[in-house]
């Protein structure tokens, strides 16, 4: 009976540890103006990642995470998928050719083929997300082994990640920048292992995604 009670306690402790998450510190700066009071309506929004830097690319899954966050909370906001938009407007939004400031859009619209395609897509806002998540520190060691009686790991690992993203909002109707949202997050993850490794992960990128997604939602949605 005592063995069963102990096993239950161990199992509960393990489950509790699995549910644990590492701590994340987040800072969000927002500066927006000319917010659409009635939301974007039937128009659509383009959400794109910047990939022109030599040392990093804005992750495609981060852009997708922000899009999904906005659309989960307000289904009425139409967001054009990044890859579809890049293909529809090839070769004008590739890393080499993408406009870096809103005035460049005006020059692009000088080309009938590009102007027609953008009109067809009915995009009112273009949002550029620039940044990435990187591992800034890691320490510890872990050893795993397999023997005739079973397998197991022993050790301790820890690492810290940091995210820095900036979303810049361009308004197509007046070809101007109407907002910037910046988010910086950092967090420490741990993985102690006594037979079973127990990851305690700090959701650094996820927190940045939620932070930037929430601010964009407030800008784009009439319901928030």
């Amino acid at each position: 009976m005592k063995i069963i009670v102990n096993l239950t306690r161990v199992a509960m402790n393990v489950a509790g540890a699995i549910l644990l998450q590492g701590c994340v510190t987040a800072k969000i700066d927002e500066m927006t103006y000319n917010r659409p009071e009635a939301g974007v309506g039937a128009s659509s929004v383009v959400l794109l990642g910047r990939r022109h830097a030599s040392d990093y690319d804005t992750e495609k899954d981060f852009v997708q995470c922000v899009r999904q966050h906005i659309q989960r909370r307000d289904e009425t906001i139409g967001i054009i998928q990044e890859e579809a938009f890049l293909d529809e407007l090839y070769p004008w939004f590739e890393p080499r050719t993408a406009p870096m400031h809103p005035s460049a859009i005006k020059e692009l619209l000088g080309q009938p083929a590009v102007a027609n395609k953008l009109k067809e897509l009915d995009a009112q806002y273009m949002i550029w997300i620039d940044g990435n998540t990187e591992r800034v520190d890691a320490a510890g060691s872990m050893t795993c082994g397999v023997g005739p009686t079973g397998a197991g790991c022993f050790g301790f690992g820890t690492w810290s990640d940091a995210s820095n993203y900036e979303a810049v909002i361009w308004d197509f109707s007046n070809l101007a920048e109407v907002g910037r949202i910046n988010t910086s997050t950092s967090g420490q993850s741990y993985m102690p292992a006594v037979v079973i490794p127990i990851p305690i992960i700090a959701p650094v990128q996820g927190t940045a995604c939620e932070g930037i997604g929430e601010q964009l939602l407030q800008f784009l949605s009439a319901s928030y």
């Binding site: 993408a98 406009p99 460049a104 080309q111």
Partner: peptide, 10 residues
């Protein structure tokens, strides 16, 4: 041929 500028400084 009216070249369209692209890229540039942020």
């Amino acid at each position: 041929a009216e070249p369209v500028s692209s890229g540039g400084t942020p």
